[in-house]
């Protein structure tokens, strides 16, 4: 198994299933617990959903690139969109009582709880979200 793998998809939420299968297969032999695998799968789906909906504004002509990299202590995931960028600090607090019944806006909150590190930065003309999960906390 190579040290990294890459998947490029159009901005179509139906492709989330393909991304999940791609990652599940690729990290299959990495020594994560089942709970950690769920954390990774959930967080990856959040990052790709964000890239499709907020980064690429559901424009199917724009792509989302997913790169998985293994390193000594665990896994690094990079999800890059082709949009105009977004400010993660500008996202409304989904736990605020007035936002509790909103149907969206919780992705970043969940990622930050489930992954060990989360970085959002401009890259390649879009936004790249980097997620890191280590075997041990």
């Amino acid at each position: 198994m190579s040290e990294h793998a890459k998947l490029v998809i159009p901005s179509d939420p139906a492709k989330l299933v393909d991304v999940d299968a791609f990652a599940e297969h690729w990290i299959g032999d990495m020594p994560f617990t089942d709970d950690q695998r769920d954390d990774i799968a959930i967080s990856l789906s959040e990052a790709v959903n964000n890239a499709i909906q907020h980064g690429n504004a559901n424009d199917a002509r724009k792509r989302v690139t997913v790169v998985l990299r293994r390193f000594e202590d665990g896994l690094r995931i990079e999800v890059t969109d082709e949009g105009n960028g977004f400010d993660p600090d500008a996202v409304a607090d989904p736990t605020d009582p007035e936002n509790l019944l909103s149907e969206s806006g919780r992705g970043l909150l969940i990622i930050r709880h489930l992954m060990d590190e989360v970085h959002v930065r401009p890259a390649d003309g879009g936004t790249r979200v980097e997620l890191i999960k280590r075997y041990h906390d």
Binding site: D38, A41, I42, N49, E103, G105, R106, I110
Partner: peptide, 9 residues
Amino acid sequence: DWMNSSGLG
């Protein structure tokens, strides 16, 4: 198996 924020939505 698992649910993400879209599932919660």
